[in-house]
Amino acid sequence: MNVESLKVNKQSWDEVAHRFYGRNPLPEYGPLAPREDELNLFGDVTDLKILDIGCGSGHSLQYMSKRNAGELWGIDLSKKQIDAAKLVLDNCNSPVSLFESPMEENPGIPEDYFDSVYSIYALGWTTDLDKTLANVNNYLKKGGMFIFSWEHPLHSRVSNKDDVLAVTKSYHEEGPYNHEAWDHPAIMQQYRISTYMNSLINNGFKIEKMIEDVCLTDEDVHRHANRWYSFEKAKAIPTTIIIKSQKL
């Protein structure tokens, strides 16, 4: 676990949390990606115990509450995000437990307890992928599922300038990097798809499905013009990977 990276990221998230309030929560898995309405990866969550890794402003947990989940749990590095989530989830029918903590640590979350753990566009912030996935495995009941989405590893390696796609960095290069789309210090982690999959396998998961489709509508042409996740780039390079796995 890189303590300095966590310190930098915590400060940045506390400063920019308001910009990401309610951004791409479930049923969305990410920009220009298929939604849970289409994929149905979770199935019926009625009465299930649910944990959100990198819960942000709590809107994905709110979605789970509306689908009658039994218990809502969340963990996030940012105090501002946790404070926002407390307000968003204040009137939920389901019991709510939120923790301000790095995902690499267990701040008191029960083990062998959850039916489902998920992470929507947050896992790439971990400074220790194996430790985080080991934690997730410990939280889950046997047979429980872990679903996560994150920026597709190819997306930041290919630029789109004047409608010309060019590889600007090696796909094989892994490790921490400063994301150019952020105007605050932000240290994310670059991994190949094989690294995610092998780390899941090594930490006791069976991979059930991987999705790297894009969803391009007429509305998205204008909504995603000249953005980091642009419509034109998404026609050639996926924006998002979504992986569903099960604890063995």
Rank of each mutant, 00 (worst) to 15 (best):
Y177F: 14
I242N: 01
E28A: 14
L98Q: 05
V3L: 15
H59T: 02
T127A: 10
A186F: 12
S57G: 12
N198T: 14
R19F: 07
R192A: 09
K80I: 09
L154I: 10
T217H: 03
F42Y: 00
M103V: 15
V96A: 05
E28L: 11
L32N: 06
L51C: 13
A17D: 03
T126G: 05
K49N: 10
P110H: 08
M64K: 00
P238I: 00
D220V: 01
A186W: 03
S94E: 14
K169P: 11
L89A: 11
I193V: 14
Y196R: 02
C215W: 07
C92Q: 15
T46E: 15
L41M: 06
N160E: 07
H18P: 04
H179T: 06
K141M: 12
P102D: 12
A84S: 12
I82G: 00
F99P: 09
L89N: 03
E4N: 14
Y229I: 00
V8H: 07
E36D: 07
Q81G: 04
W228Y: 06
E15W: 01
G144D: 02
L216S: 00
W228M: 04
S149T: 03
E173Q: 15
P34C: 07
E100C: 13
H184G: 10
L129H: 03
C92M: 15
S245Q: 01
K142C: 07
S170G: 11
S94K: 12
P110A: 13
F205K: 02
E174N: 08
N135W: 02
N226P: 08
S97T: 06
F99W: 10
S60W: 00
D14N: 15
N2K: 09
W125R: 13
D128Q: 07
Y191T: 00
Q11N: 13
E219I: 04
H18M: 04
I53Y: 01
G22W: 10
D14K: 12
N178G: 06
I242T: 08
Q81A: 10
K235G: 11
L248G: 08
G43T: 12
E36F: 06
F42L: 05
P176F: 11
Y63G: 04
F146I: 11
Y191C: 06
I201S: 04
N138A: 09
S97L: 03
V117G: 04
D218Q: 07
N135K: 05
W150N: 11
C92V: 15
Q190E: 08
H18S: 13
H172P: 01
L61E: 05
E111S: 12
G43Q: 03
R192M: 10
G144L: 00
A84F: 04
P176R: 05
K247N: 04
N160Y: 07
F20D: 02
S119Q: 06
L98H: 00
D183A: 08
I75W: 02
Q190G: 08
I120E: 01
M64F: 14
N178R: 10
I211D: 13
G56N: 06
L123S: 08
P27W: 13
Y63H: 15
I75E: 09
I243G: 04
S149R: 04
W228N: 00
W182L: 03
P107H: 10
K142D: 14
E36Y: 07
L140F: 03
A134Q: 15
Q81N: 08
W150Q: 09
M64Y: 11
L6Q: 08
D218N: 07
S65G: 15
K235N: 05
N137G: 06
I53D: 02
R227C: 01
P27F: 12
K235V: 02
A134R: 14
N40M: 13
